[in-house]
Nucleic acid binder design. Sequence first.
DNA 1: GGCAACATCTGTAACGTTACAGCTTGCGGC
DNA 2: GCCGCAAGCTGTAACGTTACAGATGTTGCC
Lengths: 348, 348
Amino acid sequence: MDKPHMSGTDTTAQAAGRPTLKTIAFMTGLGVTTVSRALKDAPEIGEETRRRVQLVARQVGYRPNRAGVRLRTGKTNVISLVLNTEEQIGGFVSDMIYGISEHLAQTPYHLIVTPYSRNNDPLEPVRYVVETGSADGIIISRTEPDDKRVRYMLERGFPFATHGRTEIGTEHAFHDFDNYAFARDAVKKLADLGRKRLALLAPPSTLSYHHHMRNGFVDTMAEIGFAEVPFNAVTVDHSIEQIRARTLQLMQRPNRPDGIVSGAGGATFALVAGIEDAGLKVGKDIDIVSKQSAKLLHLFRPELFVVNEDVRLAGRELARSVIACIDGEPAGSLQSLSQPGPVLARGE
Amino acid sequence: MDKPHMSGTDTTAQAAGRPTLKTIAFMTGLGVTTVSRALKDAPEIGEETRRRVQLVARQVGYRPNRAGVRLRTGKTNVISLVLNTEEQIGGFVSDMIYGISEHLAQTPYHLIVTPYSRNNDPLEPVRYVVETGSADGIIISRTEPDDKRVRYMLERGFPFATHGRTEIGTEHAFHDFDNYAFARDAVKKLADLGRKRLALLAPPSTLSYHHHMRNGFVDTMAEIGFAEVPFNAVTVDHSIEQIRARTLQLMQRPNRPDGIVSGAGGATFALVAGIEDAGLKVGKDIDIVSKQSAKLLHLFRPELFVVNEDVRLAGRELARSVIACIDGEPAGSLQSLSQPGPVLARGE
DNA sequence: GGCAACATCTGTAACGTTACAGCTTGCGGC
DNA sequence: GCCGCAAGCTGTAACGTTACAGATGTTGCC
């Protein structure tokens, strides 16, 4: 009533809009600062006051204004998922998004999708987010051994998590599928089936997991004493038509493979089509072990052997990691490697 | 030098951080207000000043602080895509996201993904976004004829666009695929192939496009004089296992269909599996016309007939519409219906 | 010369939040 | 009775932006 700095009409009425700290301050008769502190359980607020404020806040459905917090503190409460918009076929991306969302739902974080197309520099969206501070953390995929995006974020101390590992000395948060183990198990399976001339349909050689998968393949081949049938003309990232055409060529060669390890479900569709174009039959002339994220391959050709990759799990893990990274946890504890399940035959 | 209200250290040095209006104001010697107005081409700014300000802004790489704008104006420059996290198989969602992103890339808008799981109320994420003002516009899918989300947003005048139409009197922005035309073309194709006992694997009956597809199917059947073989036990949203099992049952019935129209590519995988479980063969005992968004069906079974739905295009259209809606354009002009392409046989 | 009209620019306040530096009050010690 | 201290609360300023209400100077007109 007699305070000198009463700010205008505020005591008269609270607007019908969303409640703010001021609303609660007015209702409780406290200062805005006190309310702010009470809501975040600051120590110098009395026990009763704290409870009173929190009660009122809950009653009126108070939610902090994100713009206010962001402007004041710089904290955006946003995670950015950086995506290549020409990502391969197979629903991979939706599962990743769902996985991330599942974890973020329990947090104040929102998920924003920051895309880039193939002709753009992959660094560009990352730089954009970091420079404009439009997120507190970034998740990237398609990681390379010497990934410049990773270097960029490490240099700037910007929190992030990668789907896939790097060869960079500095530790950072990642989640990865053990593609070495996958290729090893796949080769062993094909060997068990009596196959001897094996080929690998690998990811692009620029990506980290190309090397893991290839090493797993090569090491196990060497162990068993097999020689590889080279198949480097295409990768799992090529178009259906390209993979199909190249596979046809491969299968028409004199020493065509009798077993193939395929790094992606989508590519396996094209692979099988190419094999059948050559008049050969999966399960008879050749066996295939393929990784898949959507569970469609056994419907496609029951003779295929599959290993499931749980991308949704990867999304959850990455979300967890990037938030822990934001909270300052050491990167060493934010690394996880998901082991492949068993190689599955039809109906398993 | 002699201004009374010089605010502290600002004249001393500009921090190394991101440039703000104050930075540019200092560099040009102008006031913050002038800079702000000059950058948005306000009329009362001199031609030369405007150019000078814009030049400097470009040079220093000025980008408006989103939190500042949002706090002051309430404009978030965010579009929210509301998604069901148990969305069906087939990469549908990624294409939608890519399509939206493609359009948003040319705008200041960011895309945020707001998920909800099946057990939640679909209205909940919409209410959250509207109440907290966390976006300027919303895109929803899985539209129902009397969609409460649509009613909610219409009542509040909140900008949105729907993937799919409603039966609600008030006009609103939407993009839809003409599923009536699809079903009509599909039935005609099957009739041309000499098939007579047709069934429909439709979307869930709660969704708008269930009715469009079913009407197209029923009307065309009536026109030709065919009677439908009922197949209502499952929808395209059911699990692979369920569709497969029910299809097996269907195909073991005495008057099993010799033609099926399938509303989704993912479901068609299960459908074909069920048919083959019954010992029948697609293209011989039965023909199928299926819609698809990923182009995998012809690899799966070349005997299938397919109609492609361009979900990426839908994403672009929806993004365009929702932004136009935000800009106040009348909803009537923001409605588009995408016509199905021809029914394609193998390799076409 | 006086004055209105105009073009161009400016400062202040506010959006909602939090860091910071205070301000009271009560209480124990001397 | 006074001091110091702690507990508990408070106001002010600032984050970057824009709406608004001026301020300044210049031009043209009588």
